[in-house]
Design a protein around this nucleic acid. Structure first.
Lengths: 334, 334
DNA sequence: TTGTAAGCGTTATCAC
DNA sequence: GTGATAACGCTTACAA
């Protein structure tokens, strides 16, 4: 076990009969080194089982090639999709990922401190509890140069936001629902309270007021949790007369939508989309299942991830916020 | 931004009027240091915005307090549950997590190398493609002392396996299904091929042969993917006469079970559990949804995670494999 | 193209 | 209880 522990570049240098610095060079793609030297070094390294120590490299160069990924809400399946995509793209480009589970809202500060101690080059936030005020309060712990908010828009200065254009997206959804002929929309919103979070809901309501002069009903669910969403929807709808029921539930994301569908079908005895249509947001894998066939909105995650590594690589200091445009994924639910 | 970059222990020492080593001591829980000195140091550190550099600490002490988590199958929702649990428990105990997305089967070696370069104290494998042969081939890249296989049993020496007792678990499930009166069982297995992976399937078949003298039908699904599972089940059952259909589908895990349920209901027009019952394994969040109410088997993840950190903390070299016993979670699907 | 020497910010060891 | 000093393994000038 632990084959050849503590083999250093010096050992390899001795074995290959060169200097330590030449060993280092051999391990870099760019480097002015003769093919012969490199071969000699590589063979010696192989023989000895040398593995460069990135801690030391990072300490000396002040670049860690490490990025902290702060995640708070592991209940939403979309998190898994994002984590897969981000770690895949980053690893391909030479960035390692420090996964930090932000235990609860109060833990944001400690989590950032954690990342700082590892001297990560950047911190990526994917989550919902990272309100701008939380971020502001936690900023003093910063010892990294880039704070990136992924898949959520943020107004905070000193922060790079890579997200879908919520206003555009929700207008697309509203227009789609409208075009399908639904006239009694009902919005199922998530737990967000700060202004940056209300964009989807507000956009949807605005659209409806402007085009049809009516204000859609809304409910707020305290977490992006399907079961909770179902409970809230049930409470809101169970005592309504059939004629008073909405004809479409527009949900802030798929997790809420799926919980809503389950409740409509299994608690309220309604058909989806027969009696009530439902839309989501995110296009999680489940949305494509036979059972849900959820009409939803897909963010261009690949593009967003590619841009993310571009940001990581960049040394620029200009504004790097970027909004992307996704597309409706039309299925049977609406 | 990057408030007070490069504040080191020396700076704090100067500010507080003590030596660097005293600063270090102040930051440890155990330490022979006077309360007065500590207070002085902490104030100075606060004033300067000092954040200890864990890279340097790790380099000097040869303990990184970093653990690599290798994940290969992001399609299974259970992965999200495990990641949450592990990162939560580890973080509470002072262990940071390096998340490595094992891109494909051939990437196992490079992924381990990646971890080695960061000098992680241990590597945890949660995934299915980590066959024992892959592990063996990749071992030469080891530069960490502990290789832990989590939630999957492994026969490999030099490896610590923390898992549920598959034989015991599958016997429990088989006995349950038997006691419920089902007599035409059908097993839906995952993609695993090596012997360590076949435990659940073999145990189930053995049980049935010994107790009823019959060999249940089986299908293999090439990935733990609900859609794929559904397709395989559909192919296997669609041409059968009603009387030839199984009365229960015992699935190797919940992902397969959920895909199977969708297909039974939406493709084959069967009721679950009315016409065919279904069982799963893992108890993923979805299993408890109104739509599935899946009878499944829960692994004692908290206990397992607690034991994991115990293993991480341990300096012992004895055999640390451990099998846990879970419990059936009885719901409506069987 | 290659080598030398001085850091990088801690911890460990040993004195005091 | 506290303080020097030598590692730890690499990178970065700069010199050869």
């Amino acid at each position: 076990m632990a084959t050849g522990a503590n083999i250093t570049a010096d050992d390899v240098a001795a074995e290959a009969g060169v200097s330590r610095w030449t060993v280092t060079r051999a391990f870099r793609k760019d480097a002015s080194i003769s093919a012969k030297s490199r071969a000699k070094v590589m063979q010696a390294a192989e023989r000895l089982g040398y593995v460069p120590d990135l801690r030391a490299a990072s300490l000396a160069s002040d670049r860690s090639n490490l990025v902290a990924l702060l995640v708070d809400d592991f209940a939403n399946p979309h998190k898994l999709v994002m984590m897969e995509r981000l770690t895949r793209v980053m690893r391909r480009k030479g960035w390692d990922t420090l996964l930090v589970n932000t235990l609860d809202k109060a833990d944001t500060g400690p989590a950032l401190l954690n990342a700082s101690q590892r001297r990560v080059d950047a911190v990526i936030l994917i989550g919902l509890q990272f309100d701008d005020d939380v971020l502001a309060a936690a900023q003093h712990a910063r010892r990294f140069s880039k704070l990136i908010v992924f898949a959520r828009s943020s107004q905070k200065p000193d922060t790079i936001s890579i997200a879908v254009d919520d206003v555009q997206a929700m207008r697309d959804i509203a227009a789609y629902v409208d075009a399908q002929g639904y006239r009694r929309p009902f919005f199922v919103a998530g737990p967000r309270t700060s202004s940056a979070h209300l964009l989807r809901k507000e956009t949807f309501i605005d659209y409806w007021q402007q085009t049809h002069g009516l204000r859609p009903d809304c409910v707020n669910v305290a977490a992006y949790d399907p079961a909770l969403s179902g409970a809230v929807v049930e409470t809101a709808l169970k005592d309504r007369a059939r004629a008073d029921l909405p004809d479409v539930l527009v949900c802030e994301n798929d997790a809420l939508a799926i919980g809503a569908i389950d409740t409509l079908r299994h608690r309220l005895g309604l058909r989806v989309p027969g009696d009530i249509a439902v839309t989501g947001f995110d296009d999680i894998p489940q949305a494509d299942s036979l059972n849900y066939q959820l009409t939803t909105y897909r963010q261009p995650l690949d593009e967003m991830a590619d841009y993310l590594v571009e940001v990581l690589d960049s040394r620029e200091d200009r504004d790097m916020n970027r909004l992307f445009r996704g597309a409706i994924v039309r299925r049977d639910s609406a």
